[in-house]
Simulated scan of single mutants.
Amino acid sequence: MEPDPRFTLANERTFLTWLSTALALSAGGVAMAAVPEGVFAPWARTLLAVVLVTLSALAAGMAYPRWRNIQRALRRQEPLPPPALAVVFGVGVTAVAVIALICIVVAA
């Protein structure tokens, strides 16, 4: 059975949002790696850049499987799968923000 097109299109928009988020995280990681040496300690710059790019890879890598699983559930009229990486992204982005905040306060 074909699901309501509105749900399919909403699922597609969510997929594209995951890809946009991945691109933003990747750009943030590259920007963090390019921060001048005097701003953050080298280890902090590297750590923040690696975490951001890793989150980017996870977002991009999990976008299609998530889209596919939701589409399958919609077609079978089953419950939608839970967002498996929500906790990882919440904790990861929070960690980046806290580490960056600490570095900014210490540098000031």
Rank of each mutant, 00 (worst) to 15 (best):
S56K: 02
R6N: 09
T17M: 11
L47Q: 00
G29T: 02
T94A: 14
P36V: 03
A63M: 06
P82N: 13
T46H: 10
N11T: 03
A27I: 15
T17C: 03
V50P: 05
A41S: 12
V50S: 02
P42T: 15
A57P: 03
L19K: 12
A97K: 12
R66I: 08
R6I: 04
L25Q: 11
G28H: 09
A73Q: 14
L9W: 11
R45N: 13
R72D: 00
P82C: 10
P42I: 09
S20H: 11
T54I: 13
F89R: 07
A34W: 05
G28I: 07
G90W: 03
L55M: 09
R13C: 10
L19C: 14
A49F: 02
L80A: 08
R76I: 04
N11S: 00
R68Y: 10
G28A: 11
A27Q: 14
A22R: 04
E37T: 10
V53S: 05
S26E: 15
P81F: 09
V39A: 13
T8C: 04
C103I: 00
L55T: 00
A84N: 07
T21L: 13
V50Q: 03
R13K: 06
V35F: 01
A100R: 04
L47Y: 02
A33P: 08
E78F: 00
M62L: 13
I102G: 04
R68E: 15
Q71C: 02
L74R: 01
R45V: 06
A84R: 15
V106G: 07
P3T: 05
I70A: 06
W43L: 08
R6H: 05
F15K: 01
A57C: 04
E12D: 13
A41F: 07
E37C: 02
I104C: 01
L23T: 15
L58G: 07
W43D: 10
